[in-house]
Design a protein around this nucleic acid. Structure first.
Lengths: 158, 158
DNA sequence: TCCAAATAGGATCGGTATGTCCACTATAAA
DNA sequence: TTTATAGTGGACATACCGATCCTATTTGGA
């Protein structure tokens, strides 16, 4: 299938459930319940998002996971790259390894342009936009406060 | 990986080796040797291309495989659809099943446009163009005769 | 008729993505 | 210090693609 992986979809659904407007920490199991992502699989996705700098996780009692920056500053490209890898958009439409030094398939010129268009679109769409769309808002992102200090000691779960 | 499957690349490399200019029949093993596609796997790809109407296969002694129409009339879209399935370009960038009735992700509008652009480009590029590019020709397709009757009894292999 | 040689198709295997489960580690409250 | 509870990470199961091998079927010629 010519699409992003299912795990990227899981990541989006989960991140939307984190509300984005603030950076409160959430428990993975709560996000799983809210988003419908398999609870036993979500930690794997979250780990990739944490390694990619999208999420911050804290271990131990009263731990949890939160956005490492405001939802407005997280793009779909950030999420896709974190989950699928930095080079998930290959040089050749036929996959890396088709066009080598000698072969230059005719798709190449148009795919280069398509690829950059897709990349820039994914970069343009923010997590905040996703959340707004999910809620049916048309307006886009209402302003939010800063993230890092606002919830340094805030825990959303009981 | 966000690309067409490896099997589509195999199909292209194999079809290029069939010369395209005529519709002589070829043995699968010869095409495998010429294209570098694994000889044990190519029959699987050829079967899909035959089911998709791109190739015609004849069984038995003096059998073989040939293009069912001139290379100018075979598009990359034909090949990709034959190998990957008619609906290999999903409705949603996140794959079918992400945007359901209720969810409408913000990728949708731009992906619809991208998808059609990719589809029309794949439709525009013909196998003949691929062969020309492979040879380093810049001119594109020189005219070829009709296919079906030209080689009704022609066998290219000894 | 019988055989040679081609494609067709099923059984099987390895690799990657997807899931599940369980033990380990870190952290803070009791 | 003890303990509860969060994420971390490895082992394992499952599904699909890529790939190989073996057998069946088809076809034309000896």
């Amino acid at each position: 299938m010519f699409s992003l992986s299912q795990s990227v979809g899981y990541a989006l659904r989960a991140l939307v459930c984190m509300e984005g407007q603030d950076c409160r920490t959430h428990y993975t199991r709560d996000i799983a319940a809210c988003s419908g992502v398999p609870a036993a699989y979500l930690p794997k996705v979250f780990k990739k998002l944490a390694d990619g700098g999208v999420l911050e996780a804290k271990r131990g009692r009263t731990g949890g996971t939160r956005l490492s920056r405001p939802a407005e500053a997280v793009s779909l490209l950030d999420i896709a790259e974190a989950v699928e890898g930095k080079d998930f958009l290959p040089d050749c439409l036929l996959g890396d390894g088709f066009c080598d030094g000698s072969r230059q398939c005719p798709c190449r010129s148009f795919w280069q342009a398509e690829r950059e268009r897709i990349r820039s679109e994914l970069k343009r769409i923010s997590l905040a936009g996703l959340i707004a769309a999910e809620r049916g808002d048309q307006g886009g992102s209402e302003s939010t406060g800063t993230c890092r200090e606002a919830n340094a000691k805030t825990i959303s779960n009981p």
